[in-house]
């Protein structure tokens, strides 16, 4: 098939589309990236105090975990719609929804990371005269980092996918192109935007993996040791909202 004609014949794969609409694709991708990044970063900022609160005792842990898990069962379309009266048609609506979803994974992983800090390390730091703030910042957080970053990776990948639903309020990044393509029966646009979305998720995951390696060089030594390869099978049990 001639390259010129693929727009006319409405092919799924069309190089001409990539050339003629590159600006549109770039704009949508940029929007997708900043909505995802803002959501995960804000999610992390909210998850920390919640996790710290939750580890104070069972009285806090129950409600925090219960609430964040319940949020996870709310379908994305309903979540964004429920926020409509509060935010109107705005990026803030999409970001708020995505932050609420990311909390389930992030709070759990921050808690798991902090809980896995060896008691000896904590006692050693206390013995050295560390206060609670310095203990958290200089001892507990670095040791919890692998679990926290594992959570950030999962949250990011599912947030990239969920951002598309933001198209319902016109802030869905690549999701907007998917919906426009559906309305105008434009196959190349739908397929290109969908593939870009998956590529974006994979790239984000790899970048975060790289960050994880750079920030926690000591885990690689443990990984290489026999029996040290404890993979996050527990984390795989959580599935993402659609």
């Amino acid at each position: 098939m001639d390259q010129e004609n693929c727009l006319v014949t409405n092919d799924w794969v069309c190089v001409k589309y990539l050339e003629s609409r590159s600006q549109e694709l770039i704009d949508a991708t940029v929007q997708h990236v900043w909505i995802t990044a803002a959501s995960v970063l804000i999610g992390l900022l909210v998850a920390f105090p919640l996790a710290l609160l939750a580890r104070r005792g069972k009285g806090f842990a129950g409600p925090v975990l219960g609430l964040t898990t319940a949020l996870y069962s709310i379908p994305s379309l309903a979540m964004f719609s429920l926020l409509l009266p509060l935010f109107g048609l705005s990026p803030a609506l999409v970001i708020t929804g995505l932050v609420l979803y990311s909390l389930t994974i992030l709070v759990r992983n921050v808690m798991a990371g902090l809980a896995a800090v060896p008691e000896e390390s904590r006692e050693a730091a206390l013995g050295l005269g560390y206060g609670p703030g310095r203990l958290l910042w200089e001892v507990e957080l670095p040791l919890a980092l692998p679990a926290i970053l594992a959570g950030v990776r999962i949250a990011t990948v599912s947030t990239v996918a969920l951002t598309t639903v933001g198209a319902i309020v016109d802030y869905g990044g690549l999701g907007g192109l998917i919906m426009d393509g559906l309305d105008s029966d434009f196959k190349a646009q739908v397929l290109t935007a969908s593939v870009l979305c998956v590529v974006l998720a994979i790239v984000a995951d790899l970048l975060l993996l790289l960050l994880q390696r750079l920030l926690t060089p000591w885990t690689r030594v443990r990984d290489a040791a026999p029996g040290g390869r404890i993979r996050d099978s527990r984390i795989a049990k959580v599935t993402e909202p659609a």
């Binding site: 990948v157 996918a161 999701g175 969908s194 998956v198 998720a201 599935t239």
Partner: peptide, 16 residues
């Protein structure tokens, strides 16, 4: 893998 694939994209692709 399932986590990385947007449900909306699959729904729209299959519809088309």
């Amino acid at each position: 893998v399932g986590r990385a694939i947007p449900t909306l994209a699959i729904l729209v692709l299959l519809t088309m």
